[in-house]
Design a protein around this nucleic acid. Structure first.
Length: 591
RNA sequence: GGACCUGUGGUGCAGCUUGGAGUGCACGCCGGCCUGUCAAGCCGGAGGUCGCGGGUUCAAAUCCCGUCAGGUCCGCCA
């Protein structure tokens, strides 16, 4: 075996399949790979498409015996030009073929349970059961390599910016806050538990206290919460933290890393990312992660309709949009939108088709009769409507109205969105608290170590729910890629926050004692960010599901169809960690 | 915890509304033919507990109830 250089075939082979080019004509080569397809023309002529991760090359031979698809073979032969007229433009190696070959079967293969070409869809459960076959497919090869490039870009960019990679423990201490944690029983301390980290949040703050200045880690995180298209139990984050910096500087660190990722995976350069306050995002798009690839902002109609006396619109907030569509949705589509609005908690969804009536525009709608000419004209002007347009209006409390109409906006705009169009946006000035708990205490929106907005310290006592924080999200094409904040590094501010959210000094001490203690010994001002690598990799690969960029993902019920995990273990094993299982009848979480 | 969709030879689908023999299509598999194919072609063949259980019916892939599995979403994800 020779010394492996990057991209150069060694060992059992002299070249990779995709590397065989016209410049090799006349050379003897040895190739290894899988049999992609056999075209058998009888005893005088047969073709084998030989595949490895670099591509496919055609092997020509006069007799074929005992070779079947997906056999692993080693082929020695001569590179020859194909006869004129038989070149294949669809293949990078399409002008040549391998002739006069010796074929050695390295490994036989049973018939493959599903087609490995991209001819048709295969049920995901089948793909997952045989994931090692699924990832032979070109698409999965490409996706996982895109993901590797994302990691590579991250390391390159952050190291250029002075960040140091530090690993933090996978066996961490329970911190009953936020996401449900995976428990790991201790063998040496039966009855006690570690947890798998839901993020390295506290560890990285301790690294700041430890003087590391700029830390990053490509960190695996575990959360025992329900799964989704964009959520697995375990996921990978780029986690970073820096000392003596401002929010804007963190944004620049992350933005330039994103630019590096896009550059390496897409080969395109992107400019600066716009910033938008949380309030503005909610008001104009109805979500805190707006998809900026299309317009159709929500328009405030409260002035016009809120006091119009029309019952359907008498609410705290009235919002409308011009549907971002070129053609009128069908009756059933409209019904589906109304059903969606109702399922999200709106009283209803008012719609107005705009029609030409003589020289004027008019509305066609069950509610049209309630609108006089003046109101109609005002709405048409505000929403910038022309004949053939559709206006959709929701009236409710502010939060409900924008949220519902924001979902409708997405529903209408989703079609025809371009994966290659990357619209990043920073969302800033999130609320420090979101809602009240059962005891009427504000709940931390991000986490309790988030620094309040510099201008809002005065509101902490008088109007905590209006307090903004120094936290921020990075959003791409309607996906929340990640979030971060400037942290509290002074104990009197931290105590104040704990007081507001109702954590007593004793409780704070028992939960986060080690962090609070660390802050006593000289904590630098610091802040950071974390974003999901699964999500950015999926977007860069043009996928809508992060399972497509994960080698061995789990199903929505948290099972792995390949290994059948999770599985019961014997009582003998449980004994070593001091555990006993409940009878099957009592399901977890129910009494 | 909840809503919706899906489950039919190895794979992907049609059949289900309006019950009447496991009926059909494509791919794959097995055998045969074939000297320039590249999703090769032609001929022949094998392969099924219609996810599982119960019910209605003379009769169920089809209707009803339950259940399991997969997916999307809500809740949940500091």
């Amino acid at each position: 075996m020779g010394i492996s250089k990057m991209g150069q075939a060694v060992g059992l082979r002299s070249l990779y399949c995709g590397q065989v080019s016209a410049s090799e004509i006349g050379n003897s080569v040895t190739l290894c790979g899988w049999v992609q397809r056999i075209r058998d023309h009888g005893e005088h002529l047969s073709f084998i498409d030989l595949r490895d991760h670099t591509g496919i090359v055609q092997v020509t031979t006069d007799r074929i015996t005992d070779i079947k698809p997906e056999y692993v073979i080693r082929v020695s032969g001569t590179v020859a030009p194909r006869p004129e007229g038989t070149e294949n433009e669809n293949l990078s190696t399409g002008t040549i073929e391998i002739r006069d070959v010796e074929i050695e079967v390295l490994s036989q293969a049973a018939p493959i349970p599903f087609a490995l070409d991209d001819r048709g869809d295969v049920e995901e459960i089948t793909r997952l059961r045989f994931r090692y076959l699924d990832i032979r497919r070109e698409k999965m090869q490409r996706n996982l390599r895109v993901r590797a490039k994302v990691n590579s870009a991250i390391r390159r960019s952050l190291e250029d910016q002075g960040f140091t990679e530090v690993e933090t423990p996978m066996l961490w201490t329970p911190t009953p806050e936020g996401a449900r944690e995976f428990l790991v029983p201790s063998r040496l301390q039966p009855g006690s538990f570690y947890v798998l980290p839901q993020s390295p949040q506290i560890a990285k703050q301790l690294l700041m206290v430890g003087g590391f200045d700029r830390y990053y880690q490509i960190a695996r995180c575990m959360r025992d919460e329900d799964l989704r298209a964009d959520r697995q139990f375990e996921f990978t984050q780029l986690d970073l933290e820096a000392s003596f910096i401002t929010q804007d500087e963190i944004h620049e660190f992350v933005s330039s890393t994103m630019r590096e990722i896009v550059s390496l995976t897409r080969g395109t350069e992107i400019g600066d990312f716009p910033k938008m306050t949380w309030r503005e995002a909610m008001d104009s798009y109805g979500v805190d992660k707006p998809d900026m690839r299309f317009g159709s902002k929500l328009v405030d109609l409260t002035d016009i309709l809120g006091s119009s006396g029309i019952r359907a619109f008498s609410a705290e907030c009235v919002k409308g949009i011009k549907a971002p569509i070129s053609e009128m949705p069908s009756r059933s589509k409209l019904d589906a939108l109304i059903a969606k609005a109702k399922s999200l908690g709106a009283g209803g969804l008012a719609y107005f088709k705009v029609i030409q009536e003589g020289d004027n525009l008019a509305f066609e709608s069950p509610l049209a009769k309630f609108l006089d000419e003046k109101l109609t004209a005002q709405i048409i002007e505000k929403l910038d409507l022309v004949a053939g347009d559709l206006a959709l209006i929701v009236a409710d409390k502010w939060e409900k109205a924008v949220e519902v109409l924001g979902a409708i906006r997405l529903e209408l705009g989703r079609n025809g969105l371009n994966h290659d169009d990357l619209k990043f946006v920073w969302i800033v000035d999130f609320p420090l608290f979101e809602g009240l708990d059962d005891n009427g205490r504000p709940i931390s929106a991000h986490h309790p170590f988030t620094m309040p907005h510099n201008d809002d310290f005065g509101l902490l006592d008088s109007d905590p729910l209006s307090t903004r924080s120094q936290s921020y999200d990075l959003v791409l094409n309607g996906w929340e890629l990640g979030s971060g904040s400037i942290r509290i590094h002074r104990s009197e501010i931290q105590s104040k926050i704990f007081e507001i959210i109702g954590i007593s000094e004793e409780e704070a001490h028992s939960r986060f004692g080690f962090l609070l203690e660390a802050f006593k010994y000289g904590a630098p001002p610091h802040g950071g960010f974390a974003f999901g690598i699964d999500r950015i990799a999926a977007i860069m690969a043009g996928e809508e599901n992060i399972r497509e960029v994960i080698a061995f993902p789990k199903t929505q019920s948290g099972q792995d169809p390949m290994t059948n995990a999770p599985k019961p273990v014997s009582q003998k094993i449980l004994d070593t960690v001091g555990l006993r299982t409940l009878p099957k009848a009592s399901k977890p979480g129910s009494n």
